[in-house]
């Protein structure tokens, strides 16, 4: 068999393998993508919460996308404490002003950034939250101060529809 012939044959086999591999890939993708959130889950985007009954110093917890959201009406002391902290002292530096646009209201995903437990309210060394699972301490702005959690608790997208209604998502 001449060299030329061998080459052409090789090309044919390579092309067949390549086209076959593309097909296998294209077939596998739907089987993987089906496990992603489906259209009905994606559509459940927002929740509206009436916070008129929440007094200063109290927290309510609401469910959003299957996770707890803490809505805390902070006292003046807590706000002052949160705003006085120097950014250098923080493991994950974020200003309280950026976390709570309206200082009285802290709206935060109540999920410890370590491994996903729900921290306890008004516990820990920083008067904020304390996660009982592995001992992470959060301050009154929900920022990580001590313990294994890598980042501050997440602030979801939310807005005040009016003075009493918060729309999360």
């Amino acid at each position: 068999m001449s060299e030329k012939k061998t080459k052409r044959r090789d090309f044919l086999f390579t092309a067949t393998y390549a086209v076959g591999a593309v097909g296998v890939g294209a077939t596998i993708w739907p089987m993987i993508d089906q496990m992603n959130p489906d259209a009905s889950v994606k559509a459940l985007a927002s929740t509206e919460v009436d916070v008129s009954a929440v007094d200063p110093g109290k927290t309510i917890t609401v469910l959003w996308r299957g996770k707890p959201v803490f809505i805390r009406r902070r006292t003046q002391d807590e706000i002052a404490e949160a705003r006085s902290v120097k950014l250098e002292d923080l493991k994950h530096p974020e200003k309280d002003e950026d976390r709570a646009a309206n200082p009285e209201w802290l709206v935060m995903l109540g999920v410890c950034t370590h491994l996903g437990c729900v921290p306890l309210d008004q516990k820990g060394d920083y008067n904020g939250w304390f996660c009982p699972c592995h001992g992470s301490h959060y301050d009154t702005s929900g920022r990580i101060r001590k313990g294994p959690a890598p980042t501050n608790m997440e602030i979801p997208k939310y807005e005040f529809v009016d003075a009493n209604i918060i729309k999360i998502g």
Partner: peptide, 16 residues
């Protein structure tokens, strides 16, 4: 279309 292309390729590979 894809299957037809692959079938043709496989057919010639088979002949070879």
């Amino acid at each position: 279309i894809y299957l037809i292309i692959l079938t043709v390729l496989v057919y010639f590979s088979m002949k070879k």
